Amino acid sequence: MRYLPLPLFLLLSVGGGGLIGLAVETGGWYADLAKPSFNPPDWVFAPVWGTLYIFIGFAGWRVWRSGLGAAHKLWWLQLALNFAWPPVFFSAHTLGAALIVILALDAAVVAFMAATWRTERISALLFLPYLAWVAYASLLNAALWWLN
């Protein structure tokens, strides 16, 4: 019974992220933006996010299973911010607003890691690559805002 919700957490994180990725158009407008020298090639994003969404789903399930209410709320907050960023950036084309969303996401990821570090260390460690990528994405978002 304790493993039964795991596929639901994975479906929510991986499936939700995938659906949002399919729902936002990332081609023409984004292709025309001035980009910084550290902008990765487009093919990098799908495998990185796919892997991160698996880690996010596992961490969410572990925290839910552990009964860590505050950490679980932070998990939901980071997921909401994660899912909010692509439409703000790619659909609304509001780089400044997207920067605010992704900086809030950075803070939520750090807060989740702090909340789980002592009692659910594996979940905190699962978020470490996520934090690195979101920090990089924040820098990229800021550079795109600055250049455009």
Rank of each mutant, 00 (worst) to 15 (best):
I20R: 05
I20C: 13
G21T: 07
L22G: 14
L22W: 11
A23E: 03
A23K: 10
V24K: 10
E25R: 15
E25N: 15
G27V: 06
G27I: 09
W29Y: 10
W29R: 13
Y30G: 01
Y30P: 08
Y30N: 09
Y30I: 01
A31T: 11
A31H: 10
A31I: 03
A31F: 02
D32F: 04
D32R: 15
L33T: 06
L33A: 09
A34F: 00
A34E: 14
A34K: 14
K35C: 00
P36F: 00
S37E: 09
S37G: 13
F38V: 02
F38E: 03
N39G: 04
N39Q: 12
N39C: 10
N39S: 13
P40K: 02
P40G: 04
P40L: 08
P40V: 00
P41V: 01
P41R: 02
P41K: 06
D42K: 13
D42P: 14
D42H: 12
W43T: 04
V44A: 15
V44I: 13
V44E: 05
V44N: 06
F45T: 00
F45D: 05
F45E: 06
F45W: 14
A46G: 15
P47I: 00
P47N: 07
V48P: 10
V48I: 15
W49S: 04
W49G: 04
W49K: 01
W49F: 06
G50T: 01
T51R: 04
L52C: 08
Y53N: 06
I54P: 08
I54V: 15
F55K: 08
F55L: 15
F55Q: 02
I56K: 00
G57N: 06
F58N: 00
F58H: 06
F58C: 14
G60W: 03
G60D: 03
G60Y: 02
W61N: 03
R62N: 11
W64Q: 05
R65Y: 08
G67Y: 02
G67Q: 04
L68V: 07
L68N: 12
A70L: 12
A71E: 00
A71S: 12
A71L: 03
H72G: 12
L74E: 02
W75Y: 14
W75M: 05
W76Q: 12
L77G: 02
Q78R: 13
Q78N: 13
Q78T: 10
Q78F: 02
L79Q: 07
L79G: 03
A80C: 13
A80M: 11
A80Y: 06
L81Q: 09
N82I: 01
F83W: 15
A84Y: 04
A84W: 07
W85D: 00
P87F: 06
P87R: 12
V88F: 07
F89Q: 03
F90D: 07
F90L: 03
F90Q: 06
S91K: 13
S91F: 05
